[in-house]
Nucleic acid binder design. Structure first.
Length: 321
DNA sequence: ACCGGAATAT
DNA sequence: CATATTCCGG
């Protein structure tokens, strides 16, 4: 019974994630060649080999880097804070004092849910996703890889805020690796979030472990601490104690889920995919986005496709003393 | 070099 | 005060 509930919730969450996220149709697929074979042959262009997950992954990162580099620092007062989307500053027009608002904003669910969420059921879809502006073109070419990489390392990132989405990713990855194997570095790598440092993850992991411990500790209290808001809203990974990353040392796995599962034919396998970012990040929107396959079930096929998301945060504020 | 946990900062 | 960052020992 308990399981059912959990599963149910998962469904809910999945639905929620999908809500507002771009569908497969909205995003260009990276998996197929841009140039039709015929055309390519006609021009004697050697067809590119099929992309692998790693390739796509890499491309994704590159793209992010590019975006980051080409985005002109919006002459922020002190530094360049990316305003991914022209947020509604409407009213004032004054200084937008939204310091660490980076990733959070757009992804963070506004209101409504919270963790308690007693009422479910009716409600409505709050699909209010605004597509950002289209801009960002690789216009200028002042993309100095060196510069950005250097910046990336040197820049002082602002306090990272663990938005629900980010946390979700985190939990997914941790669950995927298995609690025991989940170490900061790996998590960081698998999350594949630009700008996320090992320290960030380590810190969060620390908290997360505490939380889990608390829960399993034997308190019948499910969500005692209101403090663990973030954590509380998320089910602790079902059983995250197994699953070893195939082989363990490599960073190139081919399969993540699906094959290794043993008799898991119950309703649905725990949806926790995510390792292989297969889609490219959005072209125009600079903010991180999650991607979820929107499949309209037809008979069978409950594959949960890749869920990719890229978040970033960081903003620079120089001043170190 | 990295992880885990406490201390410190925001 | 909660949460993220930094420091430090293993």
């Amino acid at each position: 019974m308990g399981k059912q509930v959990i599963t149910d919730r998962y469904e809910d969450w999945v639905a929620e994630w999908e809500d507002g996220l771009p569908t497969g149709h909205d995003l260009p697929s990276l998996s197929h060649p841009l140039i039709p074979r015929d055309l390519a042959l006609a021009f004697k262009i050697s067809p590119e080999p099929p992309y692998t997950y790693l390739d796509v992954n890499r491309a994704s990162q590159d793209t992010l880097s590019s975006l980051r580099g080409s985005s002109y620092s919006c002459n922020a007062t002190t530094n360049g804070c990316f305003n991914f989307k022209r947020f509604n500053d409407d009213e004032n027009g004054n200084h937008r004092v939204k310091p660490l608002a980076t990733w959070d904003h757009d992804m963070a669910e506004p209101e409504s849910d919270e963790l308690g969420q007693t009422d479910k059921g009716s409600d409505a879809k709050k699909s209010r996703r605004k597509e950002a502006a289209e801009a960002a073109r690789t216009t200028s070419t002042e993309n100095r890889m060196d510069d950005q990489s250097a910046e990336a390392k040197t820049l002082k990132r602002t306090r990272l805020v663990w938005t629900p989405q980010l946390h979700k990713r985190f939990v997914e990855v941790v669950a995927h690796l298995g609690f025991k194997n989940a170490v900061p570095k790996l998590i960081m790598q698998l999350m594949n979030v630009e700008g996320l440092t090992r320290e960030n993850v380590a810190s969060h992991l620390q908290k997360y472990r505490c939380y889990v411990k608390r829960m399993q500790g034997g308190l019948s209290n499910e969500a005692p601490s209101a403090s663990d808001k973030l954590f509380g809203s998320m089910p602790v990974p079902p059983h995250s104690f197994n699953e070893s990353s195939s082989g363990g040392g490599g960073s190139g796995h081919g399969n993540f889920n699906g094959v290794g599962d043993k008799g898991n034919h119950v309703g649905m396998q725990i949806p926790m995919p995510y390792p292989p970012p297969s889609r490219k990040i959005l072209p125009t929107t600079m903010m991180g986005i999650g991607f979820a396959a929107h499949e309209h079930e037809h008979g069978h096929g409950k594959m949960r496709m890749p869920l990719e998301s890229a978040f970033r945060a960081y903003e620079s504020h120089s001043h170190k003393s």
